[in-house]
């Protein structure tokens, strides 16, 4: 299909013989997720300091504890969350998940690799190299992801559009359509709410297949979509 050329999806074939489609996450959601995780890590650290102030743990013991916590937060916070839950809290907030390139959940080893290599991706400052890699690689992988064989993907929980379920008249278009064209009409009907005013503009491009003004053409397309879906 021609759309394979331009989309960013990654297809994997599982042992069950079915092809799964994963949607790798780009730079921006990942940057937001990182920012949230950073805030959480700082909050844990500050909270610990406050707790120690309040409970008056001796200064030196507290300093040792703080350093251990700083170490764990720096190196193992992402590893533990990714290996046990598939994502850090920041990634969960953005609906992201870390998986291996064959779609399976990531383990401790691979997660450790991708997080240790943050040193490389951070180079020379502020994850500059990692950002370039995410933008430049087809599956949006920084060095750590490439080495660990990992992907950061959008966790798909797709809700069917309301318009797709709404009842209404169903009638085919006056012109016979092939399967791909029918599919396009159905997709149009499902995305009508998202498209807003653009839906009418698109409907005007259907030529002889529909008649009347823009809203009449849109209604005809939606009715046709119901027909092709078999809801008649």
């Amino acid at each position: 299909m021609a759309r394979d050329l331009i989309d960013t999806q990654w297809r994997i074939e599982t042992a069950e013989g079915v092809t799964l489609t994963l949607t790798p996450a780009g730079l921006v959601p990942r940057a937001y997720a990182y920012a949230i995780d950073l805030a959480i890590r700082c909050a844990i650290f500050v909270a610990l300091i406050i707790v120690m102030e309040v409970t008056e743990i001796t200064e030196k013991f507290g300093a040792g504890l703080l350093l251990l916590v700083a170490f764990a937060l720096e190196w193992f916070y992402p590893v533990v969350f990714e290996a046990l839950r598939g994502r850090t809290p920041g990634k969960a907030a953005l609906g992201l998940r870390v998986v291996t390139t064959d779609g399976a959940p990531i383990g401790f080893g691979a997660s450790l690799l991708r997080n240790l290599l943050r040193v490389t991706d951070f180079f020379p400052f502020g994850y500059a190299l990692g950002a370039i890699m995410v933008v430049a690689t087809p599956r949006f992988q920084r060095f750590g992801d490439l080495v660990a064989g990992a992907l950061v993907v959008h966790e798909g929980r797709v809700e069917e559009a309301r318009s797709a379920r709404a009842a209404g008249p169903a009638a085919p278009l006056s012109v016979p359509l092939d399967v791909d064209e029918q599919r396009a009409v159905i997709s149009f009907a499902h995305r009508r709410e998202l498209l807003g005013a653009r839906a009418d503009e698109l409907a005007l491009l259907t030529g002889d297949a529909t008649q009347g003004d823009a809203s009449a053409r849109t209604a005809a397309l939606v009715a046709a979509a119901r027909w092709y879906e078999g809801r008649r």
Partner: peptide, 27 residues
Amino acid sequence: RRYDSALVDRLNALVVRAHTALYAARL
């Protein structure tokens, strides 16, 4: 059967989740 993306995407998301849950066991 080339059903529309709304249907296929929803099924795909569910299968990916099930795949993740199933293979989490091998960790």
